[in-house]
Design a binder for these strands. Structure first.
Lengths: 200, 200
DNA sequence: CACGAAACTTGCGTGCACGCAAGTTTGCGT
DNA sequence: ACGCAAACTTGCGTGCACGCAAGTTTCGTG
């Protein structure tokens, strides 16, 4: 039941993402204003803000699009213990930058304001993941808390990873594998996830 | 070693908090602009933003001032197991609205944008608490993650509490005790805190 | 098919966050 | 006591977020 409405919304969202990314790669992120993105996507500047809350969100979304939903779906579908289901879903979805993601991530790691926006993108996990966890354990409020914690941990992991970059003098170094910091950040949460799963 | 510099900074910060709160109570938060607060505190509007990142931060800060540091200090000083040290410190520091806090909290719970700001104030726990936890377990990166999780949980607890309010029709109801939602939100984290404390 | 409600877009206006580059104050070493 | 360096304040300019109130498109229903 995907009406025309929904398809148009997705199309606009994607158009904005694409436009934002293209312009950012062409001119550098600092030389892209919201108005430019909106114009390139063929909508009004005001509409941009109906889709994205901040200027960089659209650029970052070109990499992170739909990631939350896929993670949530994976957790809901997995038959592994909750703790590992979550960790594996998160790691898996972050591990494939997906071709064009490579240069985009380089752009993001290079640029301070984009780094912040990228780290914050973990926050969008909270809602979907809460639903997924709630479906597995039967305690909505615990699920909410745990989802918030996972999101926070992912954010910390991303920050750690981003911090690794750019350390070597003035030379910009694409950071190492994201997997390790992510697992490290999620590890301390495992006991909480496990405890929540057991009937008591 | 508190030089003149530091004392002046605290004075300005407090002046801004007080001015913000006073004006908000007088006129209602929507009729207070940043310029008004700055003027009332005797500094330039630009300086306001050197102290507070958002418009409502100053108002909320009148209630939450220094809370983070006190919680962090309590955790660092406590000899109880980490999990209960954290919970008790958080609960204790949130439980005393402190006289004038009463009406201020009513103002905050009443007003949507202030509610968001209040919930977000939990975020400021992250840094100080991370240090305090790091001092107790000996693993900085785990401490960072756990602090982020505690902050997230506190935020969820506050949101829960704020949600309770205003439920009864159009009648504004001062929400019940904050303690219960807070404890409930922190409970799922206990296993993680406990596990981090044990040598392995 | 027609039509009313609900969703979405858009222009406009307002207040705000924040970088930058002076100007001013504080602190410290000699 | 002096003067330099670092910290803090301020004015200014720019781009942005977002409420609001029309205007437009989509959708379910009779």
């Amino acid at each position: 039941m995907t009406g025309l409405r929904e398809r148009k919304k997705q199309a606009t969202r994607e158009a904005l993402r694409e436009a934002a990314l293209r312009l950012a790669l062409e001119r550098g992120p600092d030389n892209v204003r919201v108005d430019d993105i909106a114009e390139a996507a063929g909508v009004s500047p005001r509409t941009y803000n109906n889709y994205f809350a901040g200027r960089d969100h659209a650029i970052v979304a070109a990499v992170t699009a739909e990631r939350e939903s896929r993670i949530a779906a994976a957790v809901a579908a997995s038959s592994a213990p909750l703790a590992s289901a979550v960790v594996e879903a998160v790691v898996a979805e972050h591990h494939n930058p997906g071709e064009r993601g490579r240069d985009t991530l380089l752009l993001i790691t290079t640029h301070p304001s984009l780094r912040a926006a990228y780290a914050d993108s973990a926050e969008s996990l909270e809602g979907p993941l809460a639903d997924a966890i709630a479906a597995r354990i039967d305690d909505t409020s615990t699920a909410t808390v745990l989802a918030a914690c996972v999101a926070a941990a992912v954010r910390v992991g991303l920050q750690q990873w981003l911090g690794q970059a750019q350390k070597v003098g003035a030379l910009v170094v694409p950071p190492g594998p994201l997997e390790e910091p992510l697992r490290a950040a999620l590890a301390p949460l495992a006991p909480a996830l496990t405890a929540a799963e057991k009937p008591a």
